[in-house]
Design a protein around this nucleic acid. Structure first.
Length: 332
DNA sequence: TGTCCACGTCT
DNA sequence: AAGACGTGGAC
């Protein structure tokens, strides 16, 4: 299939139907970078309030670089994949130190990989770049009726995407990737694609073979193991004990509540070093991570002397990830 | 309820 | 280079 027969109708459709998103106003490298980091693995709807908060509080890369890391982590709380926030701050510092100009080698910056580098290059700088996210994977898989399941089909998809993006028919390097992603998000959706409204339905090979609801195929996923443990609710004069988690690993660098290890059957009373159980609340919270499912049972407890990395604070102001927000909401 | 989205980046 | 790493909404 010729690239032109995809690009021309897609760009016409995009001109009429592009989504009105905050980062599409006042386009700048900083705003494109910030939005693309937030959009990694995360839906537009979840990102919008965070993007508005960040751009108000940190209007440019210098302001973000000057902020304490803990502030950035707190502001990111709830958005997930917290290494993104740590890398965001490190990246802001690096860029600010270079006169607030992003370097040509975007991938040398923390948190910027193939996808984000291409997105910044295309959207912020108007350069032709291959920008392939999950939406583009799906759209290409259907347009070309690729039967190979994801992720094995990735190399094939990337080759096709690159041919289209770098084609002479790509007259709008900034608009084309956004057109693909908007099409994937609003028309060529994972379930029940709205082919009647699709500008590419006439050239779509999956549609022609009535495979638009079957593709892309996916390799079966591994079962998600279950883990259990205790979370300690320790009150003292209206505050609770909060734990600054280690910089790397799960929920790295975030404020959280103290917990036991996460593979122990919660048999009362728990016996963790430093904590004395006061009362089993009987309540528990369930939280699904990417690679396991966690149930934490809440126990009221006391401490003798908080260990290093622990402090007293207001759980509602600590900026904790969702797992611990659920605990606070359950208990208060 | 359970499954999917969800390649995005880093290690 | 396979696995680690969140969240919430759609269906």
């Amino acid at each position: 299939m010729e690239a032109k027969s995809i690009i021309a109708p897609l760009l016409r459709w995009y001109a009429r139907h592009k989504r009105d998103l905050p980062w599409r106003h006042g386009v700048s490298p900083y705003r494109v970078w910030l939005s693309e980091i937030m959009l990694q693995q995360t839906t537009v709807q979840a990102v919008i309030p965070y993007f508005l908060k960040f751009t108000e509080k940190y209007p440019d890369v210098r302001a973000l670089a000057a902020a304490p890391l803990e502030d950035v982590m707190r502001d990111w709380a709830g958005l997930g994949y917290y290494s993104r926030a740590r890398n965001l701050h490190a990246c802001a510092k690096a860029v600010a130190a270079s006169g607030s100009v992003f370097p040509d080698d975007l991938k040398s910056l923390p948190g910027i990989g193939d996808y984000t580098a291409g997105a910044i290059r295309a959207i912020a700088y108007g350069q032709k770049a291959s920008v392939v996210d999950g939406n583009v994977d799906r759209v290409i898989s259907r347009l070309f009726a690729i039967e190979t399941p994801l992720p094995a089909s990735k190399p094939e998809i990337r080759a096709i995407a690159e041919r289209i993006y770098l084609s002479d028919a790509n007259t709008d390097p900034s608009g084309l990737p956004q057109a693909f992603m908007d099409l994937g998000a609003t028309i060529c959706t994972p379930q029940n694609p709205k082919c009647v409204s699709c500008p590419l339905t006439g050239v779509c090979m999956a549609k022609a073979q009535n495979l638009h609801n079957e593709l892309p195929r996916r390799a079966s996923k591994k079962a998600r193991p279950k883990r259990v443990g205790w979370v300690y609710w320790v009150e003292n004069r209206g505050q609770v004990l909060i734990h600054r988690r280690p910089a790397s690993g799960l929920l790295g660098g975030m404020a959280g509540l103290p917990t036991s290890d996460w593979n122990l059957e919660p048999e009362y009373p728990p016996h963790a070093a430093g904590f004395t159980a006061v009362a089993d609340t009987g309540a528990s919270v369930r939280h699904v991570f990417t690679h396991f499912e966690l149930t934490l049972r809440i126990v009221r407890a006391r401490v003798k002397i908080p260990a290093e990395g622990y402090y007293w604070g207001d759980p509602n102001e600590a900026g904790m990830p969702s797992l611990f927000k659920k605990v606070a909401k359950t208990i208060t």
